[in-house]
Design a protein around this nucleic acid. Structure first.
Lengths: 225, 225
DNA sequence: GTCTATAACGCGATAGAC
DNA sequence: GTCTATCGCGTTATAGAC
C-alpha cells in the first residue's frame, strides 16, 4: 500500500466518523479500523489526533478559501458597493462550488464546520481563524458597506445570529432532511437548504432596529401593502 | 455532609464543567474533585454519568417548562391568533424569568442547551424531546397560526434557522460579550442580547419567500414607503 | 513504509470496609 | 452515606521487528 493511499484512506474514514459522532467521541482505533490500516498509521503520518483533525479540514478549506477570496476581491474591486444579497450569495455559491465535492461530501463538510464551532476544540478554532483571517476581514468590510443603517453593536450581534443559524443548521442537515422527509414526504438537496437560508439571513440582518415589530409591515401575496 | 448537600455540590460542579468543556470532555474525576466529594459519589447518587447529565438539565427544565406551558396555554386560550412577536416574547421572557437563576446561571443553561443539540448525545436529546414534547407541539401550533403565509417546508427550515441563531449565540454569550466590550467598549447584559435577537428572528422568519431580495422593501425612518 | 506489541495513562463503574 | 481500592477497558502514543 503506497503512502498516499494510506493517508487518503485515513482522511476519508476520519472525515466520515468525525462528522457522524464528533471529535472526542471518535477514537483512532475506529478510524484506522474503518480505513483498513494499522493503528499506528495515524501517528506515523500525522503525528497526533489533533493534527489529523486539522488535516481533515485542510482538504476542504484550501480550495474553498481560494474560491472565496477570488470572489470577494472581485466584489471589492467593483466601484459600486456590493448588495447584501450578492455578498451572502458569494459565500453560499463558494461553498456549493468547492471543486471535487459532491453533495454528500458537502454536507459532511458543513457538519464538521458546525462541530468545529460548537464543540470546544480550541486548537481547531485557532487553526481555522488563522486560515480564514484575511477572508473574514474582507467579508466584514463588505458587510459593513452593505448595511450602513446598522450601528456597530447591532451589526456585531446580527453577524453572530447569522453565523449561528448557518453553522447550527448545517451541522445537522442530514438529520433534519430525514425528519423533513419523514414528516412531510419532501426530500431537499443541500443546495436547496442553503438557498432557503439566504433570504432568512438577509431579512434578519436588515430587521428594523427602531421598531421591534416588523410584522407591522404586513405582506399579502408577496406585495407590500 | 448531608446527602442533599453532596448532590447539589455535584450538580453545581458538573453544570460548570459541562458548560465549559462539553460532556465527553468532562470526566467524573474532574467533577467530583471540583465538588470536593468522593469519586464514587456520582455513581452512588445518580447511577451513571449519563444520568448525571440528565439531572443537570432537569434542574433547569422543570421550572422553565412550567412557566412556558402556563404562558403558552394562556395565549392559546385567547380567541385571537397570537402575533409572531408576542409568541417569541413568551419564549424569551420565560427564559429570563426562570426562578432562582441569575444571569450567570442563565448563560450556562443556554450554553448547555446549545451543546445538547450539537454534540451527538443521543440519550440527552431523547430525554429533552420527551420532557418538552407537549410544549413544543403547542408552540408549533401557535407559530403556524402566526405565519400562515409560509409553506410547511419553509416554516420547517426557518424554525431550524431560528433555533440555530438562538442556541448558538446563547451558548457563548459570555465570550461574545467579552469580545464586544474589548472591541467596542460596550457592555451588554444578557437580556439586552435576547432583546436584540427577537427582531432578527421575527424578520427572518417572515422574509419574503417569493422574492429573495427583501431589501427591495426599503424602510425609511421606521415607516413603509 | 507498515506492521505488532505494548507502554503509560485516564476512564466509568463497582465491591466492600467503615 | 461515604470512603478506599481496584477492576476492566479504551485511549493516545511509541519502540522496535520486518
Amino acid at each position: 500500500m503506497a503512502q498516499s493511499d494510506t493517508v487518503d484512506r485515513i482522511l476519508d474514514a476520519a472525515e466520515l466518523l468525525f462528522a457522524e459522532k464528533g471529535f472526542s467521541e471518535t477514537s483512532l482505533r475506529q478510524i484506522t479500523s474503518k480505513a483498513g490500516v494499522n493503528l499506528a498509521a495515524v501517528n506515523y503520518h500525522f503525528g497526533s489526533k489533533n493534527a489529523l483533525i486539522q488535516a481533515v479540514f485542510a482538504r476542504f478549506i484550501n480550495p474553498f478559501t481560494r474560491l472565496l477570496r477570488d470572489k470577494l476581491e472581485a466584489a471589492a474591486a467593483d466601484k459600486n458597493d456590493i448588495s447584501l444579497e450578492a455578498l451572502l450569495s458569494i459565500i453560499t455559491s463558494s461553498i456549493l462550488e468547492v471543486p471535487g465535492r459532491n453533495h454528500r461530501g458537502l454536507s459532511i463538510f458543513m457538519r464538521l464546520l458546525g462541530l468545529a464551532y460548537t464543540q470546544s476544540q480550541g486548537h481547531l478554532r485557532k487553526y481555522l481563524e488563522q486560515q480564514y483571517s484575511e477572508e473574514f476581514r474582507l467579508f466584514m468590510r463588505l458587510l459593513k458597506e452593505a448595511t450602513p443603517q446598522l450601528t456597530p453593536v447591532e451589526r456585531f450581534w446580527r453577524i453572530q445570529f447569522m453565523l449561528g443559524a448557518t453553522a447550527f443548521t448545517m451541522s445537522s442537515t442530514e438529520a433534519l432532511s430525514d425528519i423533513l422527509e419523514k414528516e412531510m414526504g419532501v426530500r431537499q438537496p443541500i443546495d436547496e437548504i442553503v438557498k432557503q437560508l439566504v433570504p432568512f439571513l438577509a431579512s434578519g440582518i436588515q430587521a428594523d432596529h427602531l421598531n421591534a415589530s416588523p410584522a407591522l409591515r404586513k405582506v399579502d401575496g408577496g406585495k407590500v401593502q
